[in-house]
Each structure stands twice: as C-alpha cells, then as structure tokens.
C-alpha cells in the first residue's frame, strides 16, 4: 500500500494516543463513577473532603455559654431566648483569640428585622410587637432603652420573667 494512503491514518492514531495520554495525566486518579451512579455521581471523589473541610464560622450558643454563663442565663427563657448569640454579635470563629473579630451590631436596622411592624396575619410576623422606626424614637439606638438579652427587663424595673 502506498505511503500517502497510510500517512493520514498514522496522524489520526497519533492524535488519539496523545488525547489518551493527556487524559491520563490531567484527570485525577479519584475521578470516576461514585455512589450515585454515572448520571449523578460522575465526579472527583476528593472534592467531597474539600467541602467537608470548609471552616465552621458560626459556633452557636452552645459554644458561647461555656464562658458567658451570665448572659446565657439572662437570655434563656426571655422572649429572645431562641436568638443565637452570633446573630447580633457576629460569627465567633476567631473568638476569644482575637477579640476584635466580634462586631456587636447595635444598629436599629438589626432590631427592626423582626420589630418593624408588618401586619401580616398569615405569618408569625403579624404577632410580633412592632414599631414604625420613623416615628418610634428615631436616631436612638434601641439598646438605650431595651435590654436585648431580656426585652422584658427595662432599666430601673425588676425583670419580669
């Protein structure tokens, strides 16, 4: 057979071999069909561990109460008892090693997330005591009058629990 007929064939074979070699080098060893089958489980297995190793930032009230027993006692049982500490104090990932990392949000915008009055009876929002921030002591921080760890307690009065 003449050389000019076979030559393109050699080129094609060479391209296939190159692609297979590149695939061998570039595709990680743990890439393939995993538990969920070919349609949903075709992936690099090591990536599951990558996601599991993401750093936890919110350490939840269970972590905070280990040291801040007094504040925990104040808020438990109060109407704010279900609010996680870090919702207002910021994520505690670097606490207590880096005290600067916690930013306590004392802005009115934080409180009116729930306490802006919306008359939506079909949701729980309609039953939350709300204000109109434009008329309810504007420019004053809520914490000036209200104790956030127990809203039933106001300065000068006994705590009503």
């Amino acid at each position: 057979m003449k050389n000019h007929v076979l030559r393109p064939l050699f080129v094609a074979v060479g391209v296939v071999v190159l692609i297979l070699l590149a695939r061998e080098v570039l595709v990680p060893a743990d890439f393939g069909v995993q538990e969920r089958g070919y349609m949903y489980g075709w992936h690099r297995k090591g990536n599951e561990a990558d996601w599991k190793n993401v750093r936890v930032k919110y350490r939840t009230t269970a972590y905070c109460k280990e040291c801040h027993q007094d504040k925990y006692a104040d808020i438990t049982g109060s109407p704010h008892g279900a609010i996680m500490c870090e919702n207002c104090h910021g994520p505690g990932l670097a606490h207590p090693d880096d005290p600067q990392s916690l930013h306590i949000d004392r802005r009115r915008e934080l409180c009116i997330r729930c306490h802006f009055r919306l008359p939506y009876q079909a949701s729980g929002r309609g039953r939350i005591r709300g204000i109109d921030p434009a008329t309810h002591h504007p420019e004053a921080e809520c914490v000036l009058c209200h104790y956030p760890h127990n809203p039933r307690w106001t300065p000068g009065k006994e705590a009503r629990r």
């Binding site: 890439f31 995993q34 538990e35 969920r36 349609m39 949903y40 489980g41 075709w42 992936h43 690099r44 990536n47 599951e48 990558d50 996601w51």
Partner: peptide, 24 residues
Amino acid sequence: CVQVCPVGATYQTSDGVVLVDRSW
C-alpha cells in the same frame, strides 16, 4: 443541574447533597 454538567464538576453525594467541584 447535575445531568447537564458536561465535565462532571457537579455531582450528588451518597447522602443526597449536590456539590460543585470548584477546581473542575
């Protein structure tokens, strides 16, 4: 979303969570 991925960058784990391989 997993079916349409042409490169296998998104997938479902055995516990049902759909993840994305950012490097892929």
